[in-house]
Design a protein around this nucleic acid. Structure first.
Ligand SMILES: NC(=O)c1ccc[n+]([C@@H]2O[C@H](COP(=O)([O-])OP(=O)(O)OC[C@H]3O[C@@H](n4cnc5c(N)ncnc54)[C@H](O)[C@@H]3O)[C@@H](O)[C@H]2O)c1
Ligand SMILES: NC(=O)c1ccc[n+]([C@@H]2O[C@H](COP(=O)([O-])OP(=O)(O)OC[C@H]3O[C@@H](n4cnc5c(N)ncnc54)[C@H](O)[C@@H]3O)[C@@H](O)[C@H]2O)c1
Lengths: 234, 234
DNA sequence: CGGGCTTTGTGAAAACGTGCACGAGCGCCG
DNA sequence: CGGCGCTCGTGCACGTTTTCACAAAGCCCG
């Protein structure tokens, strides 16, 4: 039997690497590369080849032994697995500095995540247009979510309002959240949640910085070996 | 002998949680809470108590059995371990939308990471003042880094310039990087690197969204159980 | 058409992180 | 001042992720 296909669950660590492969593959494709080996892909991604192969094997057996992977086909498969064959409009809650930057940021809609709505509570924000989208009041959230069939919400409010925003989003029917506020938010079981926390990242760096200062020992982290850098030249 | 103290290496996963504990502890302290149990801390952090205790045990034995942890003292210990007893000025490379948002963002300097410099290459940006800091040309990077003794660099350039920015930062003497560009960058061994990638986060959410659509099975992720939410009321 | 070279796909082992369970230590109360 | 109840600290078992290593499989060349 050739391939049982993809309804096996993919480990989260692997899922988190698929977008990286996808980006690399897309770049390579644009440069006219048709075929790529796990070794090359690993090199670009800063990983080792075995990990790349194992990750890709969760998608199915799409490589050719002795040759590698066909770039275009692999792109298709990764996109399919990640659910990128459809658009996922997002709603941004909090139209402050960050919310506006995000809304104005092209690389958002470009990649299949158009801004389907912006929400705020401040009089001064509601009604204004940011990144081509009219800011609506929190009261209208459910209506916005339902009319555009939005399932991903981005929280860009101050930390104190983040839980409230999350609750409102979930109540409105959103099932995935991306939280930029520096606050732990709790969500019902079954809702996906990821966070991006600047302060946490900096503090982690600080830890290793300090450590470097005391022991002259370097260590793990996401440090990528420098060896053989490849510039992507056209 | 009481406690061999902290020169044992702390697992990265634990390091990444310490900033979260720190934030919670600081909030609790501000509200007048003097003592906290691993159970309570776990509740606030959305984790389980055993993990909290294990994480804290890497710092030393600072709890009191039958009682819990003294908040103020624990704050001090976590800060010490994370290297937050000193400021870590950062230099931001790329003064575009994101770079400006970051520079203007208070919660940066507030937490011990003042913006010590901003760098760009565009004529239109160099010389302007953003968030109280004058934007300098890339050529002046080394001088900025050395004069202010900066060891952390933030990359906020377009993806195509990210590797170049990283190389320049490392050459200038920076030893920790936080990369916002959607590109894998490679750094020499011994340099710490963390990345924040919006597209990756959204694509991970997309994966689970899609999966939810096919199987009516929910799963892992960072999903936090909703149970007993605590609002931090003064 | 067969042998050699290359690279995949994957079991199995190792490393790592998490969660459980419980002994040890401390404070409090009677 | 002794016993009780609470919570820490941690050994251990479990689950997950990474790494290793190699057989299987395809391609190319002679
Ligand atoms: N600006 C940055 O560079 C940056 C970087 C990292 C993290 N953050 C975090 O992102 C969040 C937003 O930052 P910011 O700089 O945009 O802040 P901001 O104050 O500029 O914007 C916050 C916006 O949220 C709105 N708001 C408040 N309560 C709300 C609610 N209940 N529902 C909907 N909207 C509400 C406010 O009206 C305001 O427009 C903060 O939590 C901040 O810590 C910001
Ligand atoms: N804007 C957002 O909300 C957002 C969100 C997530 C990620 N990002 C990423 O952050 C990065 C910056 O985004 P942006 O919106 O600020 O882009 P931008 O185009 O507004 O700014 C980029 C800046 O970098 C400068 N630059 C270019 N090459 C440089 C070099 N070699 N050295 C120094 N500076 C250089 C440019 O002059 C420009 O000022 C991008 O990689 C983007 O993908 C942006």
């Amino acid at each position: 039997m050739a391939g049982k296909r993809s309804r096996r669950r993919i480990p989260e660590a692997s899922v988190a690497r698929l977008p990286v492969y996808l980006r690399i593959l897309s770049e390579q494709f644009d440069e006219g590369v048709n075929s790529i080996s796990s070794e090359e892909l690993a090199e670009f991604a800063g990983l080792n080849a075995a990990k790349v192969r194992k990750d890709l094997s969760y998608l199915g057996s799409y490589g050719t032994r002795g040759v590698g992977y066909e770039v275009e086909f692999l792109i298709y498969q990764v996109r399919r697995e990640l659910g990128l064959t459809q658009d996922w409009p997002v709603v941004i809650v909090g139209a402050g500095n960050l919310g506006q930057a995000l809304a104005g940021y092209g690389g958002f809609g470009d990649r299949g995540f158009p801004v389907g709505g912006m929400i705020d509570v401040a009089e001064s924000k509601v009604g204004s247009v940011v990144g081509g989208v009219r800011v609506r009041h929190l009261d209208e959230l459910a209506q916005v979510v339902q009319s555009r069939n939005i399932s991903i919400g981005v929280i860009a409010t101050p930390g104190t309002a983040a839980q409230e925003a999350a609750d409102a989003l979930v109540a409105a029917g959103v099932t995935s959240l991306l939280n930029f506020a520096p606050t732990v938010i709790s969500v019902p079981h079954g809702i996906s949640m990821r966070k991006v926390d600047l302060a946490v990242e900096l503090q982690i760096l600080s830890y290793y910085e300090q450590r470097r200062a005391s022991t002259e020992q370097s260590n793990g982290l996401q440090a990528v070996p420098a060896e053989r850098r490849r510039g992507a030249s056209a």
